[in-house]
């Protein structure tokens, strides 16, 4: 897919995806093929309904419920949303608890700091 300029008027969505850290390299690589303009990756930790992480101190098990995950943040146009979701769904999925979650959010404004180009985005 052809890459779009990030400031084109139809970029309107932010995708937040929390995924397995061990699958981050392949997901990152495959997302490049969807034509997105870039991404931000965070190291995060948290808990949900999945299994707890159990660590040990010299043989004594200690439940350490905050599990390390990776969080992707991608700004895309409406028409790219499904391709990104499909790619994450294909490459970040094992079918077990702890595969993560994808959020799609509207983007209200985006300002390029280099040019201070501020185009309001009306979600008409």
């Amino acid at each position: 897919m052809r890459r779009r300029h990030i400031w084109s008027d139809d970029i309107v969505k932010k995708i937040d995806a929390i995924i397995r850290t061990e699958l981050l390299p392949i997901v990152k690589e495959q997302l490049k093929n969807t034509g997105i303009n870039g991404m931000t990756v965070y190291s995060v930790s948290g808990w949900s309904r999945g299994k707890d992480e159990v660590l040990q101190w010299k043989g004594h098990l200690i439940v350490h419920d905050f599990i390390a995950k990776s969080k992707l943040e991608i700004i895309v146009s409406d028409e790219q949303v499904n391709a990104v979701i499909d790619t994450i769904g294909k490459y970040a999925r094992t079918g077990e608890h702890g595969d993560g979650i994808i959020f799609v959010l509207p983007v209200e404004r985006a300002i390029n700091i280099k040019t201070m180009d501020d185009r309001d985005r009306a979600f008409e």
Binding site: Q56, W57, K58, G59, H60, L61
Partner: peptide, 19 residues
């Protein structure tokens, strides 16, 4: 200590080995 930690937790522990 490596064997004892392995027996106790199911995983051999590096903190146990160094101690």
């Amino acid at each position: 200590w490596m064997l004892l930690s392995w027996k106790r937790s199911g995983r051999a522990s590096l903190t146990a080995v160094i101690n």
